[in-house]
Design a protein around this nucleic acid. Structure first.
Length: 201
DNA sequence: TTGCCTTTGAAGCAC
DNA sequence: GTGCTTCAAAGGCAA
């Protein structure tokens, strides 16, 4: 898989693939089922200049826990996209089937499945809350002296709801840009591709 | 060693 | 259109 060159986030706050013109973005997708757990979804769209203090919206593409920015080489062709995972670590790399079937043992068949899992795996783009968590988690950890993610995430969830509409809108916009870039990088990708338990269908 | 927990949101699917 | 399911991140904890 050849990945388009991704400009380093520190070079520019805007991704080269994005024109960041209003025409570049499709209208915001309304939440499914009108559930809209976020009451501020109507805050779309936000002008790009409305979030100067936010790190590059696509920073996770280059900076992730498993992709240290210090290790980011000079952009070149065939640089693995951080959204593409080959190594098997923790949750996203264990078979979702096994998640559904906790008692599933590692049979030769499942081991072969595991090998297949090592195929390039394109991750879902992060949503607004995930982007918020990524940014705020270190602060909450430092403040609360707690590292357990289940506790941290509860706090972050409360904080998320305490944000103003404008504050949340920044992250919704960032998430929208993530989805846009993701769709450009992987035009044929579907979230269904990662639904291992549904691949049979 | 592996999966669960916990959060919100996007997306896919069935009805 | 509605409701359910899965998966994105993260790291401690239990089995």
């Amino acid at each position: 898989i050849s990945v388009p060159i991704v400009q380093h986030p520190h070079v520019s706050h805007l991704h080269p693939l994005l024109s960041y013109s209003p025409e570049a973005f499709s209208p915001p997708r309304t939440s499914p089922a009108g559930v809209s757990r976020s009451p501020h979804a109507s805050c779309y769209p936000v002008s790009p200049g409305a979030m100067p203090q936010i790190p590059h919206p696509l920073g996770w593409l280059l900076v992730s826990s498993s992709f240290s920015p210090r290790l980011v080489p000079t952009p070149q062709l065939s640089v693995p996209h951080p959204a593409i995972v080959r190594t098997r670590v923790k949750q996203e790399l264990r078979s979702p089937v096994s998640r559904l079937c906790p008692h599933r043992k590692a049979t030769p068949e499942t081991k072969r499945e595991g090998d297949e899992d090592k195929k390039l795996h394109i991750k879902k783009p992060l949503n607004a809350f995930m982007l918020y968590m990524r940014e705020e988690r270190p602060k909450v950890v430092a403040m609360c002296k707690v590292k357990e993610s289940s506790s941290i995430n509860q706090i972050l969830g409360q904080r998320w709801h305490s944000l103003t509409k404008d504050e949340q809108a920044k992250y919704y916009e960032l998430a929208r840009q993530e989805r846009l870039l993701h769709s450009k990088l992987y035009p044929g990708w579907s979230a269904r591709d990662n639904y291992v338990s549904m691949k049979v269908a």
